[in-house]
Amino acid sequence: MDSVCRTISELDALVSECRACPRLVAWREQAAREKRAAFRDETYWGRPVPGYGPPDARLLVVGLAPAAHGGNRTGRMFTGDRSGDFLYAAMYRVGLANQPTATHIGDGFELIDARVTAPVHCAPPDNKPLPEERDRCRHWLVTELELLKATVRSIVVLGGFGWQALLPVLAESGWEVPKPRPKFGHGVEYELAPAAADRAPLHLFGSYHPSQQNTFTGRLTPVMLEAVLGAAARAAGLPGCR
């Protein structure tokens, strides 16, 4: 764990200052300068995007990386792009958010007993981080799980990239990951036993990523995503979640 990170807020602040990956730094800053035409009058965040949600979350959603004109623009994970629109509307419908839309910081959007994060915190070219960039960013996710260990009970992983990135993190963070490793698939569920006395069993769920490629083709529908989120919320012991 990063020794200076005693709280989630401290972690988020440090994440937002990271410049460890030259290719990602160059790309995120280029996107912030050149902008998309629809957002030409906006000031882009252009920095690593920290996780979002309460420090005592019982459910963690793990994506891939911020979008160049989504989180890299707004400064908040899954905010300001169509993937985020799809995800947060589903989280609202199952009782994990206070409103169905998230457009910008200060819009009143809040997550309820849930937090969203990613294995890579900078927007990558073509939405494809390199393996070494994923690995260099890993310690942030290890630290995040350490800080959430007292409360987190379920994790929903969005997509195969996040799944492959998360499993070694879980093994490093005090949970037993079976061998062979659990396979990713939409709707899969595994229970991981704690390997340390201060952890509880962890329910791991897989879902297709809410990318436009998946949602526009019907590979992932709102009902499908809500079913996974609802099951994860119930496994986490969240009252009132549908």
Rank of each mutant, 00 (worst) to 15 (best):
L141M: 10
C21L: 11
P124Q: 10
A165I: 00
A195N: 11
S154T: 01
A89Q: 13
C122I: 15
H121W: 14
C21F: 13
G218V: 06
L111K: 02
R138C: 07
A32D: 06
P22Q: 12
A57S: 09
V120E: 04
S9E: 15
A68V: 07
M91H: 05
E172F: 06
T101C: 13
A200P: 10
V120A: 10
L220Y: 01
R58I: 08
P125D: 06
I105Q: 07
G84W: 01
P131H: 00
A233P: 11
R134Y: 04
A165R: 00
S9F: 13
E172T: 08
T74P: 10
D41C: 11
F205I: 03
L60N: 07
H209R: 02
A57D: 01
L204P: 00
G206E: 03
G63F: 01
R199D: 08
N98G: 14
R153L: 11
Y208H: 13
A123T: 08
C137N: 12
V15Q: 01
Y190C: 00
R136I: 11
R73D: 03
W27N: 13
V142R: 13
P50C: 08
D85L: 04
D198K: 07
Q30H: 14
T117Q: 07
T217N: 05
P125T: 06
R33P: 07
T74K: 02
K149E: 09
V142M: 10
L147G: 05
L64M: 13
C21G: 08
L145T: 05
A231I: 05
R6K: 15
G63D: 01
D107G: 08
P222N: 02
D81A: 15
R181G: 06
E10A: 14
R219W: 09
R36D: 14
L11Y: 04
L238V: 15
G80H: 08
E42H: 04
Y44P: 04
T101R: 15
R58W: 06
Y44T: 03
A165T: 03
F86G: 03
V157W: 04
E17I: 09
N98S: 12
V120L: 12
F86R: 02
H121Y: 15
P131D: 01
K183D: 05
G162V: 09
V94N: 07
I112T: 15
E17F: 10
F78I: 13
A193W: 04
S207N: 00
V120S: 09
A97K: 03
W27R: 11
G174M: 06
L60Q: 06
G46Q: 10
S154Q: 03
A227Y: 03
V157R: 02
G108I: 04
V188L: 06
L192K: 04
R136H: 13
H203C: 10
V94Y: 09
G237S: 07
S207A: 15
G53V: 05
E34C: 11
T43E: 08
T117W: 00
V169Q: 00
L202E: 06
V223N: 10
S9M: 10
K183H: 01
E144V: 06
Y52V: 13
P210F: 02
Q30V: 11
F86K: 05
S83R: 07
A165P: 03
A102I: 12
R134K: 13
L96A: 12
E133R: 00
P129R: 05
A118C: 14
A171V: 02
R234D: 09
Q99Y: 08
L202H: 05
A118M: 15
E17H: 10
R47T: 09
P54M: 00
A193H: 08
V15S: 05
V152M: 01
A231E: 03
A231R: 15
G80V: 08
